[in-house]
Amino acid sequence: MDYFDTLVSILGSTIRLSIPLLFTALAGLFSERAGVFDIGLEGKMLAAAFASACVAYLTGNPWLGLLGGIAISIVFSLVHGFAAITNRGNQIVSGVALNFVAAGLTLVLGQAWFSQGGRTPQLAGEARFQPITLPFADALREVPFLGPLYANVISGNNILTYLAFAAVPISWWVLFRTRFGLRLRAVGENPGAVDTAGISVTWLRYRAVIVAGFLCGFAGAYLAIAQSAAFIKDMSAGKGYIALAALIFAKWKPVPVMFACLLFGFLDAMANFMQGKSVPGIGEVPVQIFQALPYVLTCILLAGFIGIAHPPKAGGVPYTKER
């Protein structure tokens, strides 16, 4: 039973660690499927985390905090869109730039406003998203196996966790079952054809990056006002890049994105769990292996050893209307 308890606790932290990845990877999915590369996911998540922590602190309301995070994240998306879509600049360069702006600005403003070394003030309980206990969680806890799983893994998360998992089928439906989604995917494969059909490539791509900003806002808010109770320096800690890796690992498809994020979240949870523990027969496994594994797996995938990942054809290429 000891092993089972450990498993439940690892699965619980897997869920918690996957949520920011999931929102961010879905954000990248929309942007990249429309042909706009987004290295700036990391920066948007960080900026949103900072904004949501500030707003939640000032208003004491997590929902307003979430809105603040979403708003800032969309502003970053629009700057990215302005550079990448309107000015046809290099999308990678723009994303890198926005990551730096976010990393610097959150600390400069945080220090100037709160003077706590870049942290935002600790949030009181009601200013955060609280864990929700699903019905019967306590009653079913005693049921063998399924009880603890239900009580500790499925129940007891905050509302953003459930929204993240709801976002997966919604994203799938939007991308693959609506006219907007069809056009969005078309603009990432062959923008010329979309333009010929009389649909604005520019406006379509702008809508895609706005959706990306919207979803990154949730990821940032999750970090700052659900998982933690304040914004902490560099709290996204490379999660934007892991999400990018998950997106590629999932070959730009929504449901596989969810599994990739859960896998990478699981590796992160294992890294925390294995710290200082030794495995019988192997000895102590260095935590760095778990930290590097998401990237190593993605590179192996990119090398073509686990199927082939086909990126959207027009990804990274600015569209020039012919005259």
Partner: peptide, 13 residues
């Protein structure tokens, strides 16, 4: 921040 803005304006824009 300055570094990011330089990359943004001298690079992407």
């Amino acid at each position: 921040v300055i570094q990011g803005l330089v990359i943004l304006f001298a690079g992407a824009l």
